[in-house]
Simulated scan of single mutants.
Amino acid sequence: MQNDMGMLNSDGIPKKDFPNHWKGANGLYNVGFARRGLAGIAHDANIVASDIHTNIEMTYFN
């Protein structure tokens, strides 16, 4: 399946390498692609949640 945002390569893996693999364009995120097991997934999820929180604060509270 083609990814129109260009986030993933032909193998379905994020084009960006660790540690910047989690953030795509236009509010899209990649979680769990670091190949670091459940700890990596949890780490990615925390970073994504923090980024979403920051974006909401910047959008609505500034």
Rank of each mutant, 00 (worst) to 15 (best):
A49F: 00
H53P: 02
K16Q: 15
E57L: 12
I52Q: 02
G12N: 04
M7H: 10
V31E: 11
I47M: 07
G37T: 09
L38W: 11
G37Y: 12
F61Q: 03
G6R: 12
N20Q: 10
T59A: 03
I13H: 05
T59L: 08
G24N: 08
H43G: 05
N9T: 04
N9W: 01
G40K: 04
N30F: 07
G12L: 03
P19Y: 04
K23Q: 13
N46H: 00
I52M: 08
A39L: 14
S10E: 11
R36G: 13
I41H: 15
T54K: 14
R35F: 14
A45H: 01
E57R: 10
H21L: 12
F61G: 00
N3W: 13
D4R: 14
L28T: 12
I56W: 10
I52C: 07
M7F: 08
N62P: 04
F61M: 03
F33G: 04
I13C: 02
S50G: 15
V31D: 08
T59M: 09
K16L: 15
H21M: 11
P19D: 09
N9R: 01
Y60D: 02
K16M: 12
R36W: 14
N3R: 09
L38E: 10
F33S: 05
K16C: 11
L8D: 09
N30M: 15
A34N: 11
D17P: 05
G24I: 08
D17I: 07
V31T: 10
V31W: 04
G40I: 03
L8R: 05
A45D: 01
I52E: 03
R35C: 14
K15H: 11
G37K: 08
D11H: 06
F18A: 14
Q2I: 15
N9C: 06
V48S: 01
Y60F: 11
H43D: 08
N55P: 00
S50P: 02
Q2R: 12
L38G: 11
N62L: 05
A34D: 10
D44R: 01
G27Y: 03
V31G: 10
L38Y: 15
D17K: 14
H43M: 06
N20C: 04
M7V: 12
D11T: 08
P19V: 05
D44Q: 01
A45W: 00
T59E: 07
N9P: 00
S10P: 02
Y60E: 08
G37R: 07
D17H: 08
L38M: 15
S10Q: 09
S10T: 09
L38S: 10
L38C: 13
V31K: 04
M7P: 00
M1S: 09
T59Y: 08
G6P: 06
Q2P: 15
L28W: 07
A49T: 02
